[in-house]
């Protein structure tokens, strides 16, 4: 299962089937399967994050973006939230982070670190 909307992410001129394959390959590179957490599982797990942090972790508003941030940073912050030592200026993530296992937190940090912070610009069709 492709993690990205491959249609929007490949240059024009590639056929959709190649695009899908490429998207799939990127997924394999980006998200190493963690034990008991398959690539499609992590997509489902990460789906909930989008509701506040934006689709693919790119926030359109005052909540921080999490796409493309260093994995170690995401991991240490999630652990801080989970252990009720949240960074200042936060209100809810300590409550949410407690709902996830350390394994899931590790997989989420890896997942969002592998997504580019900015949506790739689309080439215009002439």
């Amino acid at each position: 299962m492709s993690k990205f909307n491959t249609q929007n992410r490949v240059p024009c001129g590639l056929s959709p089937s190649i695009a899908t394959m490429l998207g799939f390959a990127l997924t394999l590179i980006a998200v190493q399967p963690v034990a008991a957490q398959s690539p499609s599982d992590i997509t489902t797990l990460a789906g909930s994050c989008a509701n506040c942090h934006g689709t693919d972790g790119r926030s359109p508003g005052p909540i921080v973006s999490i796409a493309g941030r260093p994995e170690t940073l995401l991991l240490s912050q999630l652990k801080a939230f989970k252990s009720d030592t949240p960074p200042p200026g936060t209100t809810i993530m300590n409550r949410i982070a407690k709902g996830y296992t350390d394994e899931q937190i590790g997989a989420l940090a890896k997942h969002f670190a592998a997504i580019s912070a900015n949506e790739p610009t689309k080439k215009r069709r002439k």
Partner: peptide, 11 residues
């Protein structure tokens, strides 16, 4: 953050 949530989920 409520406004941030609304912006994110509607996106």
């Amino acid at each position: 953050y409520g406004v941030g949530w609304y912006n994110a989920i509607t996106q």
